[in-house]
């Protein structure tokens, strides 16, 4: 009981909020965070597309190991890792159940595992790339790839809104809890309690969206005044905005290193296929 209450004190809604914010606002000083954002995006696309061109399990295992190490290097939040692990484990669990249920053999199991590995590599790569990236860098990288400015602005504005939305959401859930009535008798496996809270979590979305929508009226006007519309039609402004993106020596090293590692993984796959 003591243990449970301590667990409750450390891992609560506030903790989740903090972890999410940490993930979103990145660690600018981490290994991946210091790289040119365009490079990281390119890296992400290459690493997450490669698995789909092969069935060689050695290569897949190698890629899995590689992306995992990269995500550890960029110090991803334990919350995100836990969520991912839960996802992967439950996926494995259901594969085993499925295979046993239909009396399948190793071949069926193996091909399903291959598929799971591909998905997992993609998700770990995205965590490694985006969790360490500063929202501003991400949005500027998108802009430099020729994505419309409205979209790249929306990305960075989304990050700006994230803490506001989280706060608002938390307050509204509180409103529901303070005035509502939780079931006294939880029922079998506390299903009534779980149902009650699930309902609140969904219902709280509507007031949150309405409150936020109301606030954006000023934002739209201020965008006009601060020359955002003007900058959309001005090439000089765009150039100025992207002037800080430069490929440096450490970026070259990163390219070489990644290339080398991928080469090793593919070589291993060729000579030692599982």
């Amino acid at each position: 009981m003591e243990f449970v209450s301590r667990l409750k004190k450390t891992y609560n809604l506030e903790w989740i909020k903090l972890e999410l914010l940490k993930t979103a606002f990145g660690k600018k000083d981490s290994y991946m965070g210091r790289k040119d954002p365009r490079l990281i995006i390119a890296w992400y696309f290459i690493v997450s597309l490669l698995p789909w061109f092969t069935f060689n399990q050695t290569i897949l295992a190698g890629l899995l190991l590689y992306t995992t190490v990269m995500s550890l290097v960029s110090r991803v939040s334990p919350l995100i890792i836990t969520l991912l692990t839960i996802g992967v484990i439950s996926e494995l669990f259901y594969i085993i159940v499925l295979v046993l249920l239909f009396g399948g053999e190793w071949a069926a199991f193996s091909s399903l595992i291959t598929f799971t590995m591909k998905i997992t590599i993609m998700s770990i790569a995205s965590i490694a790339a985006f969790a360490s990236m500063d929202p501003e860098k991400l949005s500027d990288a998108l802009l430099s790839f020729g994505v419309p400015p409205q979209f790249s602005f929306a990305v960075s504005y989304g990050y700006r809104m994230l803490p506001i939305l989280l706060d608002e959401y938390q307050q509204i859930i509180l409103s529901f809890r303070l005035r509502g009535k939780a079931p006294c008798n939880g029922g079998f496996f506390k299903w009534r309690t779980i149902y009650y809270y699930s309902k609140i979590v969904v219902k709280a979305f509507y007031p949150m969206m309405l409150n936020t929508a109301k606030k954006t009226r000023t934002t739209v006007e201020a965008l006009e005044v601060k020359g955002f519309t003007y900058s959309l039609h001005n090439k000089e402004a765009k150039k100025l905005k992207l002037s800080h993106l430069k490929v440096s020596a450490q970026d070259h090293r990163f390219i070489l290193l990644s290339f080398g590692i991928l080469l090793v993984i593919y070589a291993a796959g060729k000579y030692y296929p599982l």
Binding site: F25, E136, T219, G227, N234, K241
Partner: peptide, 17 residues
Amino acid sequence: MRPTVFEDVAFAPLNFG
């Protein structure tokens, strides 16, 4: 509307090029 103080303050002059 920008994530950090400096970005926000630099936003308008940046937009006007």
